[in-house]
Amino acid sequence: MAEAAIEVKDLSKTYGDGVKALDGINFEVEAGTVFGLLGPNGAGKSTTVKILTTLSHPTSGSASVMGLDVLGRAAEVRKQIGVVAQSSTADREATARENLRLQGQLYGMKGSDLEQRIDSLLGSFNLAGDGDRIVRGFSGGMERRLTIAMALVHRPKVLFLDEPTTGLDPEVRAEMWEEISTLAAQEGMTILLTTHYLEEADMLAQNLAIVDQGRIVAEGTPDDLKKALKGDAIQVGLGESRQQPEVESALAGVDGLSEVLLNARTLHARAADGARSVPSILTSLEAAGISVDSVTVSRPSLDDVYLKYAGRTIEQAEKNENEEVAA
């Protein structure tokens, strides 16, 4: 394995109020790759990022970035990293250029080198015409792009992106994905990104870890994780509402069927070979007097991975998030 840009060992963090945000997590990120931390609200994603970026101190365990211990050599770590926090951290009363300039100055950049860097970043983040505008007037997408540009001024070796696309509309999100893939490919940077969005992790990350309640519940490439589920996802739309025990007993005789779960009028199940199981599922349901509207068979998605390991569906996680946004 190539050199690890990030190493996390038995990291735990308990906040002052007794909340155990991290409960012994371990992972490694290979230099030059994109690593995704996927998990629902409160999983501990931001806490992990805060510790890796020297902002917060772990209760126990250790972590290093580019071989530098985040506790013992924090000052050196800070020079190597760029951080995009979960919410925008630009100064809204200043212009985009002033924000970028101060950020560069704090990393010891100055003069024409800095100004050129600012111009090129404004250009590549589609803000060329907006450099001298006050950030207060920016759209959410513009402000997010500026925040990412700010994290890149000093050409960091490792970039941390905490939920880079949360709260953006789908169009802007797609743009952002492209931006991130380009960064990873062109600059050879190591990127750690956290997200709630499965498609996002699937699309951007070479490796990912699913975090839930402060623990890593699964780790691997998106494909590996999907393969580990073994078998196809089957969804059956029922003609009327039924109870879980009813469908369970109806399907008890079907071979190779597992994880039967009724969610309103949709029946979820997993089968080693989906296409083969469908006929016997249909006959069994019919025999029990349960009518069927539709059937779909699909390869497992990360959605299923999430459901299996985090014990909740992504819908639930997103629902929580929306409630939070509304609050």
């Binding site: 000052a75 950020q103 704090l106």
Partner: peptide, 13 residues
């Protein structure tokens, strides 16, 4: 509240 202090704290400033 705006996260600006945290941004400064993760920089070498």
């Amino acid at each position: 509240k705006r996260g600006i202090i945290d941004r400064f704290l993760v920089s070498p400033a």
